[in-house]
């Protein structure tokens, strides 16, 4: 999904009001309305991008039902766009699964980060895991200045909010795209790479991240004629490992 929080970043991003209001509240009592406002300020706009996903999925050959299942079950924007992008370009299911799963890896690290804050067990752990994404983690970390209870509340409010709106708008986008014929005539085929550009843009924060982005794009284009669809994308994960390894 579109907002590129550095997940271990201390208190950056989401909303300036969080930092401004923090002195007024102690650990035990926090103002639910303020946290809810911050959560919905993220959840509603992000959720509406679900329409872009629904449209892209149908434009790539997925049925409306499959598009909605991806939002209900997969529920991680970048992975969802990757699955429909790879399949739409004629890639194999294995390429789509590998790319989508590699993009989903970071949610595992968000879970690692959120585990001591949320302390989940049983059914709540399943629900909490499913809504562990960029936005819920970002808001929760951002609310830590208001105490652990506020952080928990921000996590659930944002995660559930994004889940509801993202799924609703996926359906709207998918139904909309189904009713317009040729995707190219409506610019849908450019909207998908534009969505990826919007997802990666906020992550390009220094020379190294920009270098990795440019090299990955070049490598992928070079591999287009040489390898089956999907492989050019997954191969670039090696660049990430290489540059991550050597600092």
């Amino acid at each position: 999904m579109p907002i590129g929080w550095e997940f271990l970043g201390q208190n950056e991003g989401v909303s300036s009001s969080a930092a401004n209001g923090s002195e007024q509240f102690d650990e035990a009592a926090f103002d639910k309305r303020l946290v809810l406002r911050d959560s919905l300020a993220v959840a509603i706009p992000v959720g509406t991008y679900g329409a872009a996903f629904g449209a892209a999925a149908v434009g790539s050959g997925f049925s409306v039902f499959q598009s909605c299942l991806l939002s209900l079950l997969l529920f991680s924007g970048a992975s969802q766009f990757a699955v429909v992008g790879v399949m739409g370009a004629g890639g194999s299911a294995i390429s789509a699964i590998a790319t989508g799963s590699l993009l989903g890896l970071r949610n595992g690290l968000y879970g690692l980060r959120m585990a001591p804050v949320l302390k989940l067990n049983g059914f709540k752990k399943i629900l909490g895991a499913q809504i562990t994404i960029d936005e819920s983690t970002g808001v929760a970390i951002n609310q830590e200045s208001r105490g652990r209870a506020a952080s928990q509340y921000g996590f659930w409010a944002t995660g559930i909010g994004v889940y509801v709106f993202w799924n609703l708008f996926t359906l709207i986008g998918a139904l909309g795209a189904q009713s317009i014929g040729d995707p190219s005539a409506w610019g849908l085929d450019a909207a998908v790479p534009a969505a990826f550009l919007g997802l990666v843009w906020p992550r390009l924060i220094d020379r190294k991240t920009k270098l990795v982005a440019i090299l990955a794009a070049l490598l992928a284009v070079l591999l287009i004629p040489l390898t089956p669809a999907g492989v050019p994308i997954i191969s670039t994960a090696l660049l990430a490992v290489y540059f991550g390894w050597r600092k």
Binding site: G90, L105, R106, L109, A213, A217, A240, V241, G244
Partner: peptide
């Protein structure tokens, strides 16, 4: 942490490139 933050950057950039320039196996 470093590899985790670079993986989405590499994959998303590759997706931008492939979805912009790719058509089957042609550039």
């Amino acid at each position: 942490q470093r590899i985790n933050s670079l993986i989405p950057i590499a994959l998303l950039s590759a997706l931008v490139a492939v979805q912009t320039f790719g058509a089957d196996q042609n550039i």
